[in-house]
Computed example of a mutant assay.
Amino acid sequence: MLLGAWLAAPAGAQPPPAPARAVPALVTELSQRRVEITTGFTGADILVFGSTERPIGEGSDEVLVVAVGPPQPMVVRRKVRLLGFWVNGPAATFPEVPGFYAIAGTRPAWQMLPEEARQSNRLGLDALPLRAVGAQGPAFRAALLELKKDAGLWVEDVAPVAVTGGRLFHARLPLPATVTPGAYRVEALLVRDRRIVARQELEFDVVRVGAAAGIANVADRRPMLYGMACIALAALAGWLGSVLFRRS
């Protein structure tokens, strides 16, 4: 004997509604994904903007934005006085340091997170792992920090992340004229109860275009030709200047 079960539904009945999609805890985007360096490049601003699931503010959700540029080696030398002349003294080589580093938040990172979490996530200039080869000592690290900060290449808490309407935020990352071409990474962190609960990574590229790209290409591939051209241009500029001043 075959037994069956049947289930009848009323005519015109609608299927059960699909479950509501969860709202992401953090959504971010960049104002541009490509920065072009031309001969007249004077710097640029990258706008990072987004929204959070919960209102932003102290005691609730808070936001940190970190931007890191391509790594590069750096040499820091100490000048010493010898027989009345300043000469190069001990040098420390940092094999791999960020060419650019910027961090901003609704509050400084050290106020949002425990020190261990801040250091492990490299949130702040003092949390960067700057390994030195050669001369050692905190003075060389301090000199590197000062040089990068003066050049506008390492920026910390210059302007806080701005909040609009409770859940919308934006931050401006200033790129100086001396910024290095390459791939840049931007990371937005959502902090809640002194813990990082969500993060999102974005990328943008800095590229040389036009005459600036041609000059950089010659300087990299044919440095002797580039040096001779610079000397010739300097001599030509000096000669033209002397002619003009002589006529006046």
Rank of each mutant, 00 (worst) to 15 (best):
K148Q: 15
P138Y: 02
A135G: 03
E96C: 09
T42I: 11
P16H: 07
D61N: 07
A109G: 14
A20D: 14
P174W: 01
D150I: 03
P71R: 09
A143Q: 11
K148W: 01
V206E: 04
R131K: 13
M1W: 04
G227H: 06
A159F: 13
L123M: 13
A212V: 10
W110L: 10
R81H: 01
V163T: 06
P129R: 07
R81Y: 00
P55W: 04
T38V: 13
E201Q: 14
V75G: 14
V163Y: 01
A183T: 13
P98H: 12
A234Y: 02
V63I: 15
L113E: 05
P16T: 12
Y184K: 09
L240E: 05
F140L: 08
S242Q: 12
F169K: 09
G59Y: 12
R81I: 00
T39D: 13
P73Q: 09
A188M: 00
Q72D: 09
G227M: 07
R33N: 07
N121C: 06
L125R: 13
L83I: 08
R194W: 00
R34D: 11
H170W: 06
A132T: 03
A25M: 06
G210S: 07
P95D: 11
M1H: 08
V63K: 09
L147Q: 14
V133W: 01
E203P: 00
G210T: 03
E146T: 06
G182S: 08
L168R: 13
A8T: 13
K149E: 12
I215W: 08
P19W: 11
A213N: 11
G152V: 00
G214W: 14
F94P: 11
L190M: 08
A11Q: 09
V163P: 02
A18F: 11
G152Q: 05
E201S: 13
A232V: 00
A22T: 14
G50Y: 02
N121V: 01
A213I: 04
S60Y: 14
G4N: 14
P10F: 08
D45M: 09
A151P: 07
A232K: 00
G43P: 11
A20F: 05
V197A: 15
H170D: 15
R78D: 04
L225T: 05
F140H: 04
V97E: 07
C230E: 02
A219K: 12
L147C: 07
A11V: 12
A234R: 01
R33H: 11
R107N: 06
S248I: 04
W6N: 10
K79M: 15
V163G: 03
I46W: 02
L123N: 14
G210N: 03
S248P: 03
Q200V: 11
L145I: 03
D61E: 08
T164W: 10
A109N: 13
V218M: 02
E146N: 08
E156A: 04
A13K: 02
